[in-house]
């Protein structure tokens, strides 16, 4: 009698422990991502945006600044062609970042965007971005990396400056490993 009560209780408690493990690995990370996406919390901008025709608000000008950073010892040269621009909400804007691989070996880079203020993140739409893909540059090669974006006309009135920063990561090793694994999914969420 007592033994089976212990066995029942142990099973329940083990199930509780098991579900907390599942919670930590399989629920917390997606929950965090969803939370960040809704709130713009970690400044991540959304994935590719399908442009919908919208009226351009020519009365309003928003300043958009671009910043380029490097992670660790990433040796590439990487910078925005234009550091700052004024745009009308609703208008599609094109710009490029310039990247050079000055090293003697072929490399793969990945740019990760982050945007402040956080509350502007969901109003900044990218219809085309080099950050959606990994960038492979051969030794010594240079490239212009395109970015096309629309600032949503619904951008809250208080926001007059948006700063978009890209951090460039060296993913050469990871990329080659993924190629080996045959799952080089290039389309990614930025």
């Amino acid at each position: 009698m007592r033994l089976s009560e212990n066995a029942k209780l142990t099973t329940k408690l083990l199930a509780l422990a098991g579900s907390m493990l599942v919670f930590a690995i399989f629920i917390m990370p997606p929950l965090y991502d969803a939370f960040c996406e809704i709130t713009g919390l970690n400044g991540k901008t959304g994935s590719r945006y399908e442009a919908v025709p919208a009226a351009v608000n020519t009365d309003r000008l928003v300043k958009v600044q671009f910043v380029a950073n490097f992670n660790g010892n990433m040796p590439w040269a990487f910078k925005p062609s234009v550091v700052s621009m004024k745009v009308h909400p609703g208008e599609p804007v094109d710009t490029v970042f310039l990247a050079t691989n000055p090293t003697g070996r072929d490399m793969v880079g990945q740019a990760i965007p982050s945007l402040v203020p956080f509350k502007a993140a969901e109003y900044f739409h990218k219809t085309e971005c080099f950050c959606f893909n990994q960038q492979a540059l051969k030794a010594g090669e240079s490239a212009e990396l395109p970015l096309r974006f629309i600032v949503d006309p619904d951008l809250p009135p208080g926001v007059n400056t948006i700063t978009l920063s890209y951090t460039l990561f060296d993913v050469t090793e990871k990329f080659t490993r993924n190629l080996d694994n045959n799952n080089a999914d290039s389309e990614r969420e930025g």
Binding site: M28, D33, N42, K44, Q110, F169, D170, V171, R177
Partner: peptide, 23 residues
């Protein structure tokens, strides 16, 4: 194993680590 839970380069987020750890 090449996942990117906490690696920004792969779409993860180091801050997630801190949330899980402090939870």
């Amino acid at each position: 194993f090449g996942t990117s839970f906490f690696s920004a380069a792969g779409g993860g987020d180091p801050v997630l680590f801190q949330h899980v750890f402090w939870f």
